[in-house]
């Protein structure tokens, strides 16, 4: 992505304990940085929602409730693009294609809709997923504010 090769106008790095209480903190931090690019309210909601999905996935599926760190790297670019990387060093995803399918869920309780990736894809311009079993997963969300 061209946005990633250029020099960012601002950057933030966050490391959060993989606790569900930090999902709101991650959203608030990324949202606070995004306001520097003066997004519309619905664009900001879209970004917050996508970040929430990726961070929740890292906590529930990456670390499966065990202790770990969620790494967030957030970059702003001059063309009002924001690139947010959410990385975990958890169990990784065996089959990324399957995980990205709408309604697929790795959670058997019936309390997860299996729509996390569908929401990220619908709310961002680009969603990149790299993963290695037993090494971790990185989700890169790219969103350009209009």
């Amino acid at each position: 992505m061209r946005g990633e090769r250029r020099k960012p106008t601002n950057e933030m790095k966050l490391e959060l304990a993989s606790r569900s209480v930090n999902e709101a903190l991650a959203r608030a931090a990324v949202s606070a940085m995004a306001t520097q690019l003066d997004p519309k309210l619905d664009e900001l909601t879209e970004l917050r929602t996508a970040v929430s999905e990726a961070v929740t996935n890292a906590i529930i599926h990456g670390y499966r409730g065990s202790e770990g760190t969620v790494y967030i790297n957030c970059r702003c670019y001059a063309d009002r693009t924001m690139v947010v990387k959410i990385k975990d060093k958890g169990c990784g995803i065996e089959n990324i294609e399957q995980a990205r399918e709408p309604l697929y869920t790795g959670d058997p309780s019936g309390e997860r809709g299996g729509m996390g990736f569908a929401i990220m894809e619908s709310f961002c311009d680009r969603v990149k997923v790299t993963s290695k079993p037993n090494a971790g997963t990185t989700v890169t969300l790219t969103k350009r504010f209009r």
């Binding site: 909601t45 929602t49 999905e53 309780s109 019936g110 309390e111 997860r112 809709g113 729509m115 929401i119």
Partner: peptide, 16 residues
């Protein structure tokens, strides 16, 4: 004020 797919899961889970 805010809802992600967990809210969707909440609705679908209650429906079930």
């Amino acid at each position: 004020d805010f809802m992600d797919s967990s809210g969707l899961g909440l609705v679908l889970g209650r429906y079930t």
